[in-house]
Design a protein around this nucleic acid. Sequence first.
DNA 1: CGTACTTTTGAATCGCATCAAATCTGGTGG
DNA 2: CCACCAGATTTGATGCGATTCAAAAGTACG
Lengths: 206, 206
Amino acid sequence: MDWQALIESQPALASIPPALRLVTEHRKIKAGETLFRIGDRVQSMFCVITGEVRLIRHDQHGAQIVLQRSRGGFIAEASLGSKAYHCDAVAAEAGSVLRFPARKFRASLDEDALFRDAWISHLASEVRKLRAQCERLSLNSAAERIIHYMESEGKVGAINLNQSRKAWAAELGLTHETLYRTLRRLQDDGTLDIDGARIAIAHTVS
Amino acid sequence: MDWQALIESQPALASIPPALRLVTEHRKIKAGETLFRIGDRVQSMFCVITGEVRLIRHDQHGAQIVLQRSRGGFIAEASLGSKAYHCDAVAAEAGSVLRFPARKFRASLDEDALFRDAWISHLASEVRKLRAQCERLSLNSAAERIIHYMESEGKVGAINLNQSRKAWAAELGLTHETLYRTLRRLQDDGTLDIDGARIAIAHTVS
DNA sequence: CGTACTTTTGAATCGCATCAAATCTGGTGG
DNA sequence: CCACCAGATTTGATGCGATTCAAAAGTACG
């Protein structure tokens, strides 16, 4: 396995200790493939390299709810301490993932201080990100959620959308129609500069 | 300081190593008191013992958004790895907190394996809880959010509300009026059994 | 007893979801 | 190269439900 290339695409992997690298499998995944199902015993830890994996649950009507959408990085980190998964993991588009045996992963956390520190900061950054997400979802206008996203995710109030707007709408907890309409409105009234995938908060000339 | 009593109220404290206990301060807080402000350097780690502390941020209109509401346990865990706080911490009601020096806290994580494991599972459980919260906030009817809360927070679909309904409404991302009305409706149509602070999903006799 | 806060109900409004449909896009295979 | 298809993007019309503003009643606490 070419770890150098992997680390370039996922810097978080740099701290994976050699012993764990030896037992890591690089697996290709097809769109629609299931990595694990709710209730399965946690025997593996996954890291998305390319493509997109989603953690989903279903409500009583069968509607699917996306818990996490990952286009790179670990998924279901919180499950490492659990017996069983609490959601399904499905590939939304083809790509590849790393599969680490969970036992060895836990052992490495115990033995390797650098790896452990990296893991703790990874969890902490996940907590921060999720809190921002909750904060955003508790805003109740589409425009406020968009602006909040731009301010918290983007640098200097500008983002380069690396996903379809439809997927972005789902992340913002909006329907895609509302997102399209609101973006249009914000562009028309001069709040946003929109150029394809690049969206920026307009500078008001003072 | 009586650690035995503290541990009974907060089992998570059991893994705090002796060296860290020696430098821990047990401080009383008054309602409305500020523990730290956004931008302050992270020099302390706080654990709520009694009372209620909230992490809040303010949007551009000055409306306050609650990021975390704690009635026991660590707050702003993700800040341990940061230079500065990214929100304010304010006591919503009088109580007491433990204050740990951040440097010593970090050092203890490095030195004590049990403490470190406890901290990692604490972070992981926070991630799980926040994901559930995001999942809930992306439901767009008041009734669905209430039911989701009952199913994910309560045992066997019943909860004992340990907060005012107004505070619960804020947590659900609803206005208190909507929560009152929806609870009433769910009770009237037989979906919920409500008796003061005890709320349960009604059993439909099949 | 009075004050502050929560709980409750009412009425009006606004914005988002929903359903529908047309256009555009990228990718596949003939 | 073109036909075709699936999915994304866009626009329109409608209805519902949450917010908002308002006010009254209940409750805890000093």
